[in-house]
Amino acid sequence: MFQSFYSAIVELCENGGKRPAGGSGFTREQADAIRRIRASKDSWDVLGLKPGASREEVTRAYRRLAVLLHPDKCAAPGSEDAFKALGSARAALLRNLP
């Protein structure tokens, strides 16, 4: 048991703290969210909101997706770009909301 634990730690260190590519390392929900963000046409769509949402709704949607897609926690391909898109969308929306 110690050997497998030690091997897992060494593997994480060698991969820069990321999970090894051998396992999937991501869920279907994460993959679906990345796919939806890539296909989004505007900032509202990136966060999965309807135009006119409040600042609180924008922040809540951002936090939920940020936890789901943070590159340190999600090994899905495209998670870094999707995470950056989330931040940009949130900033754009909050900048234009009263």
Score class of each variant (00 low, 15 high):
Met1Pro: 10
Phe2Asp: 15
Gln3Lys: 14
Ser4Ile: 07
Ser7Pro: 00
Ile9Gln: 12
Ile9Gly: 07
Glu11Trp: 00
Glu11Asp: 04
Leu12Pro: 04
Leu12His: 13
Cys13Pro: 01
Cys13Lys: 12
Glu14Gly: 08
Gly16Ala: 06
Gly17Arg: 00
Lys18Ser: 08
Arg19Trp: 03
Pro20Thr: 00
Pro20His: 02
Pro20Lys: 01
Ala21Lys: 05
Ala21Asn: 08
Ala21Thr: 04
Gly22Cys: 08
Gly22Met: 09
Gly23Trp: 04
Gly23Leu: 08
Gly25Leu: 01
Thr27Gly: 11
Glu29Ile: 03
Glu29Lys: 12
Gln30Lys: 08
Ala31Glu: 09
Asp32Lys: 14
Arg36His: 14
Arg38Tyr: 15
Arg38Met: 13
Arg38Gln: 15
Arg38Ser: 13
Ser40Asn: 11
Ser40His: 09
Ser40Cys: 11
Lys41Cys: 11
Ser43Phe: 12
Val46Gly: 07
Leu49Ile: 14
Lys50Val: 12
Gly52Leu: 08
Gly52Gln: 05
Ala53Ile: 02
Ser54Asp: 10
Ser54His: 05
Arg55Asp: 15
Arg55Gly: 11
Arg55Ala: 15
Glu56Ala: 14
Glu57Cys: 01
Thr59Ser: 13
Arg60Ser: 13
Arg63Gly: 08
Arg63Thr: 14
Arg64Asp: 15
Leu65Arg: 12
Ala66Asn: 05
Val67Ile: 10
Leu68Arg: 00
Leu68Gln: 07
Asp72His: 12
Asp72Lys: 14
Asp72Trp: 11
Lys73Gln: 12
Cys74Ser: 02
Cys74Tyr: 07
Ala76Leu: 01
Ala76Pro: 03
Pro77Gly: 10
Gly78Pro: 03
Gly78Ser: 06
Ser79Met: 04
Glu80Ser: 03
Ala82Gln: 00
Ala82Glu: 01
Phe83Trp: 11
Lys84Ser: 06
Gly87Glu: 00
Ala89Pro: 02
Arg90His: 05
Ala92Met: 07
Ala92Thr: 04
Leu93Arg: 01
Leu93His: 01
Leu93Ala: 03
Leu94Gln: 09
Arg95Tyr: 10
Asn96Asp: 06
Asn96Val: 01
Asn96Gln: 08
Asn96Met: 04
Leu97Thr: 09
Leu97Glu: 09
Pro98Lys: 14
